[in-house]
């Protein structure tokens, strides 16, 4: 097919949106993708998006998988999580329950990712524009982020506040992790080479 001949840049970073239902995962995604805010709420099943972005003057592609907060079936959730390289774990600052559930999401992600504590992960407190209805304090969220060793960003999908920041923070984490792993791989390869040489000698 002709449309596939133009090869897109090879680096694709896979981001997964997780969080309880109604916290604004899709709203954040749509704001990031198309710079629009959708008021109407419709539960997402699972949508994926791809966009070309410039990350620190390097052109990369971001693949966003917007998952269903309502997905009750763990096996399916595992399948989503396994396909991701980085996670935006979203809660609503106006809903304590959604904040508490981030713990479950974090645990599930770690379980799926073989307890890799360094998995690129950003904790996102959305609906920052509804500050007067805030029930999750910045301190509480930051404390949790500190415990997990992750970044905390407060966003508003409505006003676009910090939306790009949250995505780009995660993208950098993913990129750095990939670079690290690549470096590690070449190292082990070298070691292997050395070993082999030893045997030859």
């Amino acid at each position: 097919m002709s449309k596939n001949k133009a090869q897109p840049p090879s680096v694709v970073h896979k981001v997964i949106m997780v969080g309880s239902g109604g916290v604004g995962k899709s709203a954040l995604t749509l704001q990031f993708m198309y710079e629009e805010f959708v008021e109407d709420y419709e539960p997402t099943k699972a949508d994926s998006y791809r966009k070309k972005v410039v990350l620190d003057s390097e052109e990369v592609q971001i693949d966003i998988l917007d998952t269903a907060g309502q997905e009750d079936y763990a096996a399916i959730r595992d399948n989503y999580f396994r396909s991701g390289e980085g996670f935006l774990c979203v809660f609503s600052i106006t809903e304590l329950d959604s904040f508490q559930q981030t713990v479950e999401f974090r645990e599930q992600i770690l379980r799926v990712k073989q307890s890799d504590e360094n998995i690129p992960f950003v904790l996102v407190g959305n609906k920052e524009d509804l500050n007067d209805k805030r029930v999750v304090t910045i301190e509480a969220a930051e404390e949790r982020a500190r415990q997990w060793g992750v970044n905390y960003v407060e966003t508003s999908a409505k006003t676009k506040h910090n939306v790009d920041k949250s995505f780009f923070t995660l993208l950098r984490l993913i990129r750095d992790k990939k670079l690290q792993e690549a470096a590690l791989n070449t190292q082990t390869n070298k070691k292997k080479d050395k070993k082999r040489r030893c045997v030859v000698l």
Binding site: R50, K51, L65, R82, S83
Partner: peptide, 26 residues
Amino acid sequence: EKLAVVNVKDSDKLKNAFQILDFPNT
């Protein structure tokens, strides 16, 4: 039952696509 199905939104490069995820297959 275990299959995760993802609706891939249309973009310039890709239209009418969907994904199925069943670890390790994507």
